[in-house]
Amino acid sequence: MAEIQIRNVAKQFGSYTALRDINLTIADQEFMVLLGASGCGKTTLLRIIAGLETATTGEVWIGGRRVDHLPPRDRGIAMVFQNYAVFPHLTVFENIGFGLRMRRMAETELRQRVERVAELMHIEQLLKRYSGELSGGQRQRVAVARALAMEPDVILMDEPLSNLDALLRLEMRTELKGVLAESRTTAIYVTHDQVEAMSLADRISVMHQGRIVQAASPIEVYRNPATEFVGGFIGNPPMNFLPARPLGEGRWQVAGLVVDGPRLDKPLHFAIRPEDLRPAENGLQARVRVVEPLGAHVLVTCDVDGAMLRAVLDSDISLNPGDRLTLAPQPDRIRWFDPETTRAVH
């Protein structure tokens, strides 16, 4: 059992605040992704859990044990680094067995363990090579194998796929998900790539300016972003936001359209995902500015009452810049945000 609890963790680098008041519980065997733009503090949080960085305040608990005062090796963790950190002076075999050697594991057991994880990561034919003789993808596999060989309670991964090319990244992503599910370890995975986060995570913690702004399942984060930032950060193209004026009785004026919404009496932001807009008789009056074919879909950027609106439409529609278009939002997908706090309003 390796539930992870992060309690009131904050981190200060001099006068710069990297993390503020982080509280997060990660369930045993959960795959948690820390997602955010660079500088949001996600790597710092991971390094604090690993023990490579000390929190200024707060506690880290792993498996019911407080670990923030322990060195990394006593925390029951293994880690996959962004640049792999595969030791160049050791063979693949010795790299995978490094942690086991540090634990003074008996030679025969070590050999079996290394060979088993090497097979799992499909690198059994590379065991005698040095890292200088490996491709980026192979090094990545060695780094993962080295972590798995420890049979840790928790695997920490710091942007492990960011140095791979697109095709390889896709392949490794699928493989990682399978391997980690099978290993039944708790995993924390740092990335800035929202697609990676969506596809891997049981739960995503979206981080922004040193805070966790939302921690929820990928679909929840996507459908019901807690703040405008999350809506804009997750999803490509991002969520659309339009100013909305209250008409009373839960009726709202959005550009030329009147829609139902929360019973509040102050201006809000109306939000809708680009794929939740459809051409219709009755809707938002838009003027097409840019048309970008994406294969199955077409991305249309339009102008609605002076604001920008993006829509992802079926590619059988024929549009040109300057055309007029009426777009209807799918009513159950409309979200509302308070422009003062940027938080979601229900």
């Binding site: 690993a50 023990g51 490579l52 060195p71 990394p72 090796r73 963790i77 293994a78 880690m79 680094f81 950190a85 030791f87 490094f98 942690g99 540090m102 634990r103 080295r146 420890m150």
Partner: peptide
Amino acid sequence: EAAEVFGA
């Protein structure tokens, strides 16, 4: 850091 994490 890798060495430290893996027990050295």
